[in-house]
Design a protein around this nucleic acid. Structure first.
Length: 422
RNA sequence: GGAGAGGUGGCUGAGCGGUCGAAAGCGGCGGUCUUGAAAACCGUUGAACUGAAAGGUUCCCAGGGUUCGAAUCCCUGCCUCUCCGCCA
């Protein structure tokens, strides 16, 4: 959510910044409604002032046994007026709040301007593409042949885009989760959290998933609660409605959570394999930082996610998303894309964003500065990493001519010393 | 699932329908005292909106209602706790 003050004072700047996102938002209606809202509020406050003064007067007169019928009558009218105006104000406020909640974040100045993903900017590459003697197999062929991934039975019990891991496949997923969590908690200084995987509407709204993206979420039938689409939601909600101390910052949290996504509107995309599932595991990184150094922290967060791939020896590139490809709540985003040999493509395996104060404002996350001022911290989040997609990369990049898959050195202690899956 | 209790400021916890943004204690901050610290004592200490400021309005879980006036009364919802039942 953007600050109303910013909208009122710097509307033209906001407009042109948002235009780079390819959003066509009209502000004319909002401007009128905002003015109406302020006028109404003034009227109501004047009336309430009158009522409050009368409330002081009435008991005095009562004690003095002075007549007050006329005053009571007058105040009854005033109260009726107030409730009439308030009903109107409530309606307008709800409209305006809805407008604000649906406005995307303003891109940071360093974000490349562009219309869609074709104009994202490559920042760097790490490692080399592996060389194969014959055409590399897709991870689902490898996984099914090795008996570690079972898409058929996943679909049988749950539907398409669900998978069953078996034996060493399940163990590999678990090994990756532990490997990532250990790395982030020991080497990178994050506090491990095990949050709820079901959250209420307020947590979803605070983090920016709602009201705009309800169709992408799984909602529980009788409770207005949702399955989390990412660990970012519970981790960022940890400090909702709180006022932190400046000395608390930065706060660094990590968590492994399953993520649940409806994937509405992605029919026909990545229908086979692990790339796009309704349920997948992810290790998430979330930071709360001071606004002054949040962009340094974004680089750090990105480096922390990259470290996972480096330790696993997986070739990847880092891309800075252009304005047109930026997610709703992000001011700046780096995607890490891992090499997927069977597709001869880089595929997103992590997305690291600085949300600035967009979520903090929605979720009422604040901190008190040394001189007592109340400010919104910046929130950052990134995948460190998407676990299912890491399995994709491992199976494909480490596949051997004999059909086996070598386990990278860094992971072996988590696999009971196993060197390859065959 | 059944029965009951309750949701008040950073925390604990008072609060008669009007003088309550709200007692008191703790904690925090500043000070006195002290070589220093502790203790003691004194002072101070919520948030949002609005306004140049003075000030004004709002907030005692949320939403409705009663009333000239609600933290206080009524209704609904949410949440927490206790006991019983069930259960990993």
């Amino acid at each position: 959510m953007l600050a109303i003050k910013t909208l009122r004072d710097k509307l033209e700047q906001v407009k042109s910044a948002l235009a780079t996102r390819q959003s066509d938002i009209s502000f004319t209606q909002w401007i009128a409604a905002d003015q109406k809202q302020r006028r109404l509020k003034q009227t109501i406050e004047t009336l309430k002032f009158k009522r409050n003064r009368a409330s002081e007067e009435i008991p005095k007169r009562k004690r003095a046994k002075e007549p007050l019928d006329a005053l009571l009558k007058e105040m009854k009218t005033v109260s009726e007026e107030i409730s009439r105006y308030e009903a109107e104000l409530k309606r307008i406020e709800a409209e305006n709040a809805d407008f604000l909640l649906n406005l995307p974040n303003v891109p940071h100045v360093s974000v490349p301007v562009g219309k869609d993903e074709t104009e994202n900017q490559e920042i760097r590459r790490w490692g080399e593409k592996p060389v194969f003697s014959k055409a590399p197999l897709s991870h689902w062929v490898i996984g099914e042949t090795l008996g570690i991934l079972d898409f058929e039975r996943g679909a049988k019990m749950s539907g398409s885009r669900f998978v069953l891991y078996r034996g060493l496949g399940a163990k590999l997923e678990r090994a990756l989760i532990n490997f990532m969590l250990d790395l982030h908690t020991t080497a990178h200084g994050y506090t491990e959290i095990l949050p709820p995987f079901i959250v209420n509407r307020s947590s979803m709204t605070g983090t920016g998933q709602l009201p705009k993206f309800e169709d992408d979420l799984f909602r529980l039938k009788d409770s207005d609660c949702f399955l989390i689409p990412t660990g970012e939601v519970p981790l960022t909600s940890i400090h909702a409605d709180e006022i932190l101390a400046e000395s608390d910052l930065p706060l660094n949290y990590t968590a492994h959570t399953p993520c649940f996504r409806r994937e509405a509107g992605s029919y026909g995309q990545d229908t086979r394999g692990l790339i796009r599932q309704h349920q997948f595991n992810k290790v998430e990184l979330v930071k709360f930082t001071s606004p002054t150094d949040s962009y340094d922290h974004l680089e750090q967060l990105l480096a922390h996610a990259e470290t996972v791939l480096q330790k696993l020896g997986l070739h990847y590139r880092v891309v800075s998303l252009c304005t047109g490809d930026l997610g709703f709540h992000a001011a700046k985003t780096y995607d890490i894309e891992v090499w997927v040999p069977s597709q001869e493509k880089y595929r997103e395996i992590s997305s690291c964003s600085n949300v600035e104060d967009f979520q903090a404002r929605r979720a009422k996350i604040r901190y008190r500065t040394a001189d007592g001022k109340i400010e919104h911290p910046h929130t950052l989040n990134g995948s460190g990493l998407a676990v299912g997609r890491t399995v994709v990369a491992l199976l494909e990049n480490y596949q051997q001519p004999d059909g086996s898959v070598v386990i990278p050195e860094a992971l072996r202690s988590y696999m009971g010393g196993l060197e390859k899956i065959s």
